[in-house]
Amino acid sequence: MTILDIIIQQLTNGLILGSFYSLVALGYSMVYGIIKLLNFAHGDIYMVGAFVGFVILSFVSTLLGDGWLGILPSMILAMTAVGFLGVLIQRIAYRPLLSAPRLSILIVAVGVSLVLFNSVMVVTIGEYKAFPSGLGYEGITMGHVHITYTQMVMVGATAVLMIALHLFIAKTIYGKAMRAISIDMDACRLMGIDVNKIIALTFFVGSSLAAAAGVMAGVYYGSIHFFMGFVIGLKAFTSAVIGGIGSIPGAMLGGLLLGLLESFGTQLPWVGTEWKDVFAFGLLILLLVFKPTGILGRTEIERM
């Protein structure tokens, strides 16, 4: 393999990984932006998304097959269902604590994470589940590099979701309300904005994006398990911090950067794949020390 082959291959790997990180990081960043909560249950939402997608696809595939024709509608259904789960969690666990000290709500988020994690563990008896997709390895081969259609569809789907989200935030009145709440919540109330509804909407959007990533990860890796959300939750948090937590373009950028960094980092001499988490979290520590506002973040004086 030539250097170019390696670059193209790692670029593909990095983009796929980065897509997952970005989609999950978006929910982290949106929720942080609007209510200043680091939602540590968000990685588990991604995991639940994968399992909900698994269940839905099991039914849908009997009708539409287990190719993209079955997977895409299953993904949309899973996104909707998990979006509502996010709203429900927000309503039950977070909303009563919105005016409480930030630390209380943070601890509740850890509690929600444990509830989701353990519930799925009990339901699945802690087993790996084979994701029932029938996608093959067909694709485009260029020299030594092989890029599957699955990989291309995933990067494409992520791009579509991000563009849709960007338009939603930039152009619609609800997107503007989300940004305004992150600037001044009480001023929004005085504009006649039902702040609780907009917060719920934010949780819906963030959770459904994480579910999309969960379903795609299931399809891509072929198996899912109850602890798959833990590490990606931390990685997505890292991505959000890289981009600047609270910033939506920052979350997209941070996720992609982290994905690329991990895949290229493993190509360094004497460094193997087992080092990729060291890269990610080493970077997180450096950033938190030297540039806690990230690449695109606003300077924020308030501390967690």
């Binding site: 940004r179 305004a180 600037i183 929004c188 005085l190 504009m191 006649g192 904005i193």
Partner: peptide, 28 residues
């Protein structure tokens, strides 16, 4: 009944037009 609060509390970081759009949230 509308309340223009002390300190103006406009949304800095958003455009003038966006501020006005948000003012019209209830008749969106």
């Amino acid at each position: 009944l509308i309340h223009a609060p002390e300190g103006r509390r406009i949304f800095k970081g958003m455009t003038v037009q966006e501020n006005l759009d948000l003012g019209g949230f209830t008749n969106r």
